[in-house]
Design a protein around this nucleic acid. Structure first.
Length: 464
RNA sequence: GCCCCCAUCGUCUAGCGGCCCAGGACACCGCUCUUUCAAGGCGGCAGCACGGGUUCGAAUCCCGUUGGGGGCGCCA
């Protein structure tokens, strides 16, 4: 029988970057070995079983290029299976009813006793309530792990845990065990935070009579700068959010695959084919990895630059059309296309794009005060420079080469290198000291609009 | 408190006993190219947590210490 893996998120409404990495590794492994990738939604908690929460996850998976061969199976639709399993465990003496409340348990175990359940109801013979799994008192369970080797858990350290709630619904541990058997999962690839739950699942599995045990691969956690597991509250964890900020799916995927794994050789920018060809779960490192947005950005920049210009233009459109810093009707795609190659080289995320071209679609450039100060106000000859530019631009040919030549010449007249001479003009026309190449910008902007902006800047400079 | 995992530059990693006085990438710092900024080119800074073993030889194997993290819910 072939390799079968599964990605089984709880529906939270969005795909967490940690979940995305887990999904990716499962998927890559399945593709690498020619196995089957199953998507299963672990929505045993009724409150989280809403369709829209699941759609968010599916959307992000698709965006990353991760497709599934089976599913999505939903645990909320498989409740009979779990009920049968619980009945079987109850009948076999592997489980028992319990009506203890959290408070009662803590009152008994006392301070320092930890949160472990004390087995109070083991032999009370109750016939209703929650159902607990009866953990063996002796022996051990070995979790075979491709990344960490065998991990051994003493049964004496495993409490009698709940497998079915008082309302009759199954808890994740039970559903998980039942489904992995039922779906014939051969490799369980998931986050390291689930490692302590694994012996419990294995115990249920054995009690249910499953003969075999899947192979596990507990992936290293993705952590924040404080070296803690990424949390929704403090960290940016939603894949969707990165998408909205202008990260490309290919770049995101490339970055994620590098968290805990690396290809052979020195080149870490790689396409899907190479990823699939080289990825193997046994090569994944066991230690946690910091989610470094700086590096994600760098990789994203590389991917943006590698795009064909037409693709870059198309991909940028959402950022140019949705909530742009200029009146929407003033946007001109043809104009954008002319400067796109220059923009492409400077954007690290697509959300950088509008600010690089806003001066082209605004009646007046948004002038940054610092830029004005540094680029114009504090330049002694700025006024003369602007006057000269005004005169020269009035006459000269209107193309980048001519503008370059003319501007260099008027700079020389004031003993300035072009680098210095262009600054006041750039600020006057674009509002900033930095940006895409100036002469190309002027060329695209047009003579009239350029002259108008230079005039206004000149006036502003003379004003007290 | 108990259980478990982890440990190479700031970060992601290569390294799986000699090829390593440790290689690449990001970040950072110079220089260069240059119409600014980017991009590119060149160079630099920076690491095997510590202590014991094993071995002719250890970043690599073993033990311990320290440090970090995860888990212990009628969440998943």
């Amino acid at each position: 029988m072939g390799t079968r893996v599964r990605f089984s998120p709880a529906p939270t409404g969005y795909l967490h970057v940690g979940g995305a990495r887990t999904a990716l590794f499962n998927w890559l492994y399945a593709r690498h070995v020619g196995g089957t990738f199953v998507l299963r939604i672990e929505d045993t908690d009724a409150a989280n079983s809403r369709d829209e929460l699941i759609e968010g996850i599916e959307r992000s998976l698709r965006w990353l290029g991760i497709d599934w061969d089976e599913g999505p199976h939903r645990q909320s639709k498989r409740v009979e299976l779990y009920a049968e399993a619980v009945a079987q465990l109850l009948a076999g003496g592997h489980a028992y009813y319990c009506d203890c409340t959290r408070e009662q348990i803590e009152a008994r175990t006392g301070p320092g006793g930890g949160a472990r359940y004390d087995g109070w109801c083991r032999d009370r013979g109750l016939t209703s309530g929650a159902v607990r799994f009866r953990s063996p008192d002796t022996g051990q369970t070995v979790v075979p792990d491709l990344i960490r080797g065998d991990v051994v858990f003493e049964h004496s350290t495993i409490e009698d845990f709940v497998i079915q709630r008082t309302d009759g619904s199954a808890v994740f541990l039970l559903a998980n065990a039942v489904d992995d058997v039922d779906m014939a999962i051969t490799h369980v690839i998931r986050g390291e935070d689930l490692l302590p739950a694994t012996p419990k699942v294995l115990l249920i599995r054995a009690a249910l009579g499953a003969a075999d045990v899947p192979v596990f691969a507990h992936l290293p956690l993705i952590v924040n700068e404080k070296r803690q597991k990424l949390s929704k509250r403090r960290d940016d964890v939603a894949v969707e959010e990165y998408r909205e900020r202008g990260y490309l799916a290919d770049a995101m995927r490339n970055y994620l695959v590098l968290l805990g794994w690396s290809p052979g050789g020195d080149e870490e920018i790689m396409g899907l084919e190479r990823m699939i060809a080289e990825f193997d779960i046994v090569d994944v490192k066991p230690s946690p990895a910091f989610f470094d947005v700086k590096k994600l950005e760098a990789i994203n920049g590389e991917y943006i630059r590698a795009l064909p210009v037409a693709t870059f233009v198309r991909d940028s459109l959402p950022w140019l059309e949705m909530d742009p810093p200029w009146p929407p009707e003033q946007f001109d795609l043809a104009v954008f296309e002319r400067v796109a190659p220059f923009v492409q080289e400077r954007a690290r995320v697509l959300s950088d794009v509008p600010a690089l071209v806003d001066f082209l679609f605004l009646d007046e450039p948004k002038t940054d005060p610092d830029a004005w100060e540094k680029g114009v106000a504090r330049v002694p000859v700025a006024g003369d420079l602007l006057d000269d530019a005004l005169a020269a631009y009035h006459e000269c040919d209107w193309n980048p080469a001519a503008l370059h030549e003319v501007t260099a010449a008027l700079g020389e007249r004031h003993g300035l290198k072009l680098a210095k001479a262009q600054a006041p003009i750039r600020v006057a026309v674009t509002g900033r000291t930095v940006g895409i190449p100036l002469f190309e910008s002027l060329h695209v902007l047009g003579r009239e609009r350029t002259l108008e902006r230079l005039r206004r800047a000149r006036e502003r400079l003379s004003a007290p």
